[in-house]
Design a protein around this nucleic acid. Structure first.
Length: 197
DNA sequence: TTGTGTTTTACGACCTCC
DNA sequence: GGAGGTCGTAAAACACAA
């Protein structure tokens, strides 16, 4: 307010000395100052300020002075405008960053769901395969009860057994063995929530 | 017209750096 | 200690629905 009064040339050097304003004049000045307090900058002024801001986020003292002269503003106004502009810029940047992180998080959640589904599928396949192995194994062991029958009917039990298992291994892809291995060796201790259990 | 929400301008308090 | 920064906020200006 005081700076405005000073810059508006409303000081009064009366014989009484000091900066005394006559009552009417003072009233007008206060009203004008109040009005000027929140005067919006013109489009042209804002345009030039924005242009300057694009070039430099902070103003050197000299640049501030010259810009103020160029715009017909108080250097303080220019400084304040830059302070507010930086604040707005920061807010917008934070909003953008928030949206970016939110989007990334959503993508990660979707991916996690897909991976969990896949793990369930693979576990199901693994379980079926294990059942199959077990079934075949029991069948072969049953045959072993009569060794003589086996010896006469087949050249080699172990060969048959291995062939069956080998065939089964071929039927199961590497992923199942990997999952089985990881699950039995590591994942049990890592918490079941990862596997959706 | 008016109530309400948003944006812009201005300022005080506090902090940092030289 | 002073200059200049951020942060929080008040208040004017503005936009807009009802």
């Amino acid at each position: 307010m005081e700076s405005y009064l000073m810059s508006s040339g409303f000081t009064d050097n009366t014989p009484q000395g000091g900066k005394i304003l006559r009552r009417r004049q003072k009233k007008a000045v206060v009203a004008a100052a109040a009005e000027a307090k929140k005067r919006k900058l013109s489009d042209e002024q804002v345009k030039l300020l924005e242009f300057s801001f694009m070039r430099e986020r902070k103003l050197e003292c000299r640049r501030k002075e010259s810009l103020a002269i160029e715009l017909g503003l108080d250097p303080k106004q220019v400084a304040v405008w830059f302070q507010n502009r930086r604040a707005r810029w920061k807010t917008r940047k934070m909003e953008e960053e928030y949206l970016r992180l939110k989007s990334e998080n959503e993508e990660a959640v979707v991916e996690k769901c897909q991976l969990e589904k896949e793990v369930l599928k693979l576990k199901e396949r693994l379980s079926k395969t294990e059942e199959e192995i077990s079934r075949l194994s029991i069948g072969i062991n049953g045959d072993q009860k009569d060794v003589r029958t086996l010896e006469s009917s087949s050249s080699s039990l172990s060969t048959v057994n291995h062939e069956v298992v080998a065939e089964d291994i071929n039927a199961v892809d590497w992923q199942e063995y990997f999952i089985d291995f990881m699950y039995s060796n590591y994942w049990i201790g890592w918490g079941d929530d990862f596997l959706g259990m």
